[in-house]
Design a protein around this nucleic acid. Structure first.
Lengths: 223, 223
DNA sequence: ATCTTCAATCAATAAAATTCTCATACAAGC
DNA sequence: GCTTGTATGAGAATTTTATTGATTGAAGAT
């Protein structure tokens, strides 16, 4: 499960990101409207959390532009005050739900889950690469019908690699995707997780899926 | 792609440098304004990342002096706080973009990529020459749908050649683009890498893309 | 509260890949 | 034919990655 968080208050994004990562979500962040719009359009997310007040392009406008482009990803809007006006505008413009600050993280999460349930009522939505199958909604990973059980971090890393099949992903990218703060990231944790992922995903299989890109990072691909 | 990082916080430079090296950039660093100004003036970079607060000469002044000397290298400024004043000063003085700390590395990189795209007037993310396709951001190289895996140095050299399709590139230009300035240039490393690139890119293909320009260097072209 | 378990992290060493040097063979241009 | 420039293989030097075991810390059970 992968969500995009478009919000410029660093302290708030830290909390939200951490919370979702603990629940096994992958979280991408954008700190201004421009970046947010770009990511929402060209990457694929299960939901978007969108602040109303943003640098460069405001939330309402982002929402409108996305809907105009037929992008139907569920959007939950955040706003600073209970302003009926904003709320009406937001929903008119294509947002699916609405939450006013300040809020409890638990409530945000409950609402996101509600949106996701609605979106995925009985749809299957798995990513398949060769005989590896990963279901980000149910958080189930299988290789050739055999269920592989992964810890939250392992899952998060594998999900990132899977979504960028064939593309080398750097350790820095993995860190930023999986941990909440990264700027003291000169350790080899990523390498260690890759090692355990290999044990669980590739060991005993002819075809290895996790590949080292020397000097760069790792990638998931058939060869 | 070669960038200069002028910043005195060691921990920050470590992380930034690591991130860019993973992305295939050559990175020079300067820990004070004097050194930074010197390097920016006499070496050649694709972009400069410049902290505002620096020992000896501050960022604003460096920026101004470089522009006065008609050095047009794209400059991205870093500053500790969101200070509108600083921002205005920075942009007035000739910086091309601006980022406030703390930031995610991904955001820094996205902005640098934007500056580079502008510099090279490149609209598409992938560069295509005949059946060779290279995506510098995703770091994927293909020849006729077949993925070619390259080491960091190989990739960097091929990237340079593709960005300057049809024009001869000297060994010195290749060195400046791929190595940082600590490198001694009296060796034939470039020739050796060209040999391995030929093996990976041209071997087994009718059309050779990498050509020697005798007495000058190399070029990438259809014949 | 204490114990147990397992995930996450750190640190150290072993293993592997890349990068670089050097020697020699080959080609171009005069 | 001579000089200068280029190509490439092999191995040494360096850098990067893999892997393991010890340690820390948090969640659940008793």
């Amino acid at each position: 499960m992968r969500i995009l968080l478009i919000e410029d208050e660093k302290r708030l994004t830290d909390v939200i990101k951490k919370g979702f990562i603990e629940s096994g979500f992958a979280v991408d962040q954008a700190f201004d409207g421009e970046e947010g719009l770009y990511l929402a359009e060209f990457e694929s997310y299960d939901a978007v959390i969108l602040d109303l007040m943003l640098p460069k392009i405001d939330g309402t406008s982002i929402c409108k532009q996305l809907r105009d482009k037929k992008i139907t990803t569920p959007i939950l809007m955040l706003t600073a005050k209970t302003q009926l006006e904003d709320k009406i505008t937001g929903l008119n413009v294509g947002a699916d739900d609405y939450l006013t600050k300040p809020f409890e993280f638990a409530e945000l999460k409950a609402r996101i889950n509600a949106l996701l349930r609605r979106k995925y009522q009985q749809l299957e939505n798995t990513i398949v690469i060769d005989d590896l199958e990963i279901d980000p909604i149910k958080r189930i990973v299988k290789r050739g019908n055999k269920i592989i059980s992964l810890t939250p971090r392992e899952f998060s890393i594998l999900e990132l690699l899977t979504r960028h099949k064939d593309q080398p992903i750097t350790r820095t990218q993995i860190m930023e995707h999986t941990w909440d703060y990264n700027f003291d990231s000169l350790s080899n944790v990523v390498d260690v997780f890759i090692a355990t992922l290999r044990k669980k995903v590739d060991n005993g299989h002819q075809k290895k899926l996790i590949h080292t890109v020397h000097g760069v990072g790792y990638k998931l691909s058939l060869r």
